[in-house]
Amino acid sequence: MLEGKFEESSLMKKVVDAIKDSVKLCNFNCTEHGVTVQAVDDSRVLLISLLIGEASFEEYRCDRNITLGIDLESFNKIIKNGNSSDFLTLIAEDSPDNVLIIFEDKKKDRVSEYSLKLMDLDSDFLQIDDMEFDATITMPSSEFAKITRDLKTLSESLQIIVTKENVKFSSDGDFGTGNVVLKGFVDMDKPDESIKIDMARPINLTFGAKYIADIVKGTSLSESVTIKLADKSPALFEYKLPSGFLRFYLAPKFDE
């Protein structure tokens, strides 16, 4: 039996918004520690790893591991019906055919109850081992979203170059080029506005801008984004949740 109650439905709304355009069907694996999702987008380029830890819930109970095979498009239609400030409760039996989705308005005594049919999805789980990274950048998530959106207007490839003192986002297209250079800086009053660059080795990688555009759909989940880069390995783009994370892994482009 799974029963998980969120203080607000806004977290789940943002999570579904962040991943529904990249993956259509995915398993929400519920255990006593929380809910995890691992899925690869249709082009098999982007790997998504989500953990909504138990502490994200107002109340959480999951006596036996339960897998919820969910069509995110359908789930999104239901989730949109709730107000962001409503309590959101998910309830499912052991080996369930559907999941109950309950919104409770905090002021008025209004309860909305939906049932979503579940699907039987095979789970090809990918093993994500700890990786060594050459550089780690932590920066405001909205700034990363703006820079990548701006540079995508010039080219379908985004270059990220990290040296000792700065990180350069670069785009080189048919009609022109664009470069945005950031230096590390600490914002004492608003730490989330800081830009932190840890470089073990200089790195210069090129990514598909359309996949980065999918990744920045996670922006509303966290004030900051952490980008971890390693040569010829998938980059990690992480949005931290109050308890958990939404991680995107994207391999750089490189000449064969």
Binding site: V45, F125, Q127, S233, P234, Y249, A251, F254
Partner: peptide, 14 residues
């Protein structure tokens, strides 16, 4: 033209 490798090339199915 640099190509975009698939992610399963880097993570093995467990």
């Amino acid at each position: 033209m640099p190509e975009q490798p698939s992610i399963s090339r880097f993570f093995k199915s467990s």
